[in-house]
Simulated assay, not measured.
Amino acid sequence: MANTHVFDGGNYVEVDRKANVGDLIVITNDSTFPRENNGKIGKVEFAIGNGISVNIGEGLDYYPHVFTGEYRVLEPLETVDESQASPQVIDMLANLARRVTSLELQLRDTQRNVETFAEQTEKNSEGIRELDERTQSLTRKQVKIDPPTITECYISFSHDGITNLDVSFVGKPSVEELVKVFTQSLNGGKRR
């Protein structure tokens, strides 16, 4: 949740945005002067390059330079006439203001994440298109596989439990030779 501050009798909430001339800011990350200025509140007098010049008082007329990212802008909370509102209502409004600010920050982060995701998706899509173009020229190479060659064949056959036929072939037996062997076996092993 965003931090709230009381300054000159007003309630303010920190927001993360670029400060404009006249805005109140709180120094959050002072890198140019002693860090003792962190937490000090001042009014933006003018913009300088990548930062702002701020009047923080306390004997210093102007804070010479606060870089972007070293401050948060203070926006006033809705003013409530405290005589007409209970402390619980004032606390509730302050909490709601903090929640709104927190949700705004979450929304900004989510939008940034969506933009990053969209950029990455586009890069991935380009890579996929490039790979698709590169693989379009590739075709499947058809390979012809010859049937296996039988170089030696041994057949053992028993027709009636008594007649056995054992045949060996060297090379590839033809269908006619196989028919001849089986026919011989069926005829009792005698050649015809």
Rank of each mutant, 00 (worst) to 15 (best):
Q136T: 12
E130C: 06
S156W: 06
T151A: 04
K144E: 12
I128T: 05
K144P: 00
R129V: 10
V143C: 02
I162G: 05
E133H: 09
S158F: 05
G171M: 03
R140D: 14
V167A: 12
T135D: 00
S168N: 13
Q136F: 00
D166A: 09
D166H: 10
V170M: 06
V167N: 04
E130L: 12
S125I: 10
V167E: 08
V143K: 09
E130A: 13
E152G: 06
S137T: 13
G171H: 03
V167K: 15
G171E: 02
C153N: 01
K141S: 10
D146W: 06
G161F: 00
P148C: 05
L131S: 07
P148Y: 04
R134H: 04
E126P: 02
F169W: 07
N164G: 11
S168K: 14
D146M: 09
I155G: 01
L138G: 03
S168E: 14
D166S: 10
K144R: 11
L165V: 15
D146H: 10
V167F: 05
T139R: 14
Y154Q: 12
C153A: 08
R134I: 11
D146E: 15
E130F: 08
Q136E: 14
T135S: 09
Q136G: 09
I155Q: 01
P148T: 06
I128C: 04
L138T: 07
G127I: 00
T135Y: 04
L131Q: 09
K172S: 13
L131N: 10
S158M: 14
P147D: 07
G161T: 01
I128H: 05
K172E: 14
E133D: 12
C153Q: 00
S168L: 10
T151L: 06
L165K: 07
L165G: 05
F169T: 00
P147Q: 06
Q142D: 11
T151H: 09
S156R: 13
L138Q: 09
C153M: 12
L165N: 02
C153S: 04
G161V: 03
